[in-house]
């Protein structure tokens, strides 16, 4: 699509040199093999110690936080409609172990994680984060899927949590959310918006009844 943003076509698997060229805010399209994995997979593989569902070379090196709107036909073939990411921050706690066993160097998802996670977990593994766009360019992403070479842990985890291996071509768009130095596009944008927020609240006062979360001291009352 036409945009003034810098746009890169990236082949998978991507080398560290390939990733070094990606700045936050760059538009990326992917060609090659990737796989889906989310909380059910992480818990089973990392926490329960089951390891990877297949050889890493068969899964690919980019982990998409999603599950497709898809169905397994009676003849064993697959019909994939749309694919859209799910919010990634919930999965941060498993990623260190996941990078170790998966060897992946690209995480694709929704909303990114904190730059602290990028610095502590992504950077040591030479990994970056790509965010989906919208969110919900599910139909555009669905168009980029050329083949489904395998689905793993379907019986163990169900269709929505299973590992779907996808061979894709011009699959995107995505935006580079974290680079190899651990910078975050979202945090950069948050910082731009922050200075204007106080004046939005001018003239208002906190609600009469407070809630936990507005104070972390649980010895306090909420009134």
């Amino acid at each position: 699509m036409a945009t003034k943003l810098k746009t890169v076509e990236l082949k998978l698997p991507a080398t560290t040199d390939d990733l070094r060229a990606l700045e936050i805010g760059t538009v990326v399209y992917l060609t090659g093999r990737l796989y889906t994995a989310r909380e059910g997979v992480y818990k089973r593989a990392v926490e329960d110690g089951a390891g990877m569902p297949a050889a890493n070379v068969d899964l690919g090196s980019a982990n998409f936080h999603c599950s497709p709107a898809a169905v397994i036909n009676p003849d064993g073939t697959y019909k994939v409609g749309a694919v859209t990411a799910t919010a990634s921050f919930r999965f941060a706690k498993w990623l260190d172990g996941w990078f170790d066993i998966s060897g992946s160097n690209i995480i694709i998802g929704k909303g990114g994680m904190t730059s602290e996670i990028y610095r502590n977990v992504f950077v040591p593994h030479n990994a970056i984060y790509l965010t989906t766009v919208g969110y919900g360019t599910g139909a555009l992403l669905g168009r980029g899927i050329r083949d489904v070479p395998g689905v793993y842990w379907r019986d163990e985890l169900g269709l929505a949590q299973a590992v779907w291996v996808l061979d894709v071509e011009h699959f995107g768009p995505f935006l580079v959310e974290s680079d190899l130095a651990g910078n975050s596009l979202f945090e950069r944008e948050n910082a731009k918006i922050a200075p204007g927020i106080d004046k939005l609240y001018a003239g208002t006062k906190p609600a009469t009844l407070r809630r936990y979360g507005e104070t972390d001291d649980k010895t306090e009352e909420v009134i």
Partner: peptide
């Protein structure tokens, strides 16, 4: 563009339906 693709292909506009 995604809405157009969804209608053309008759596929869900978003993967999280």
């Amino acid at each position: 563009e995604n809405y157009e693709a969804a209608k053309e292909d008759r596929r869900a506009m978003c993967g999280d339906t």
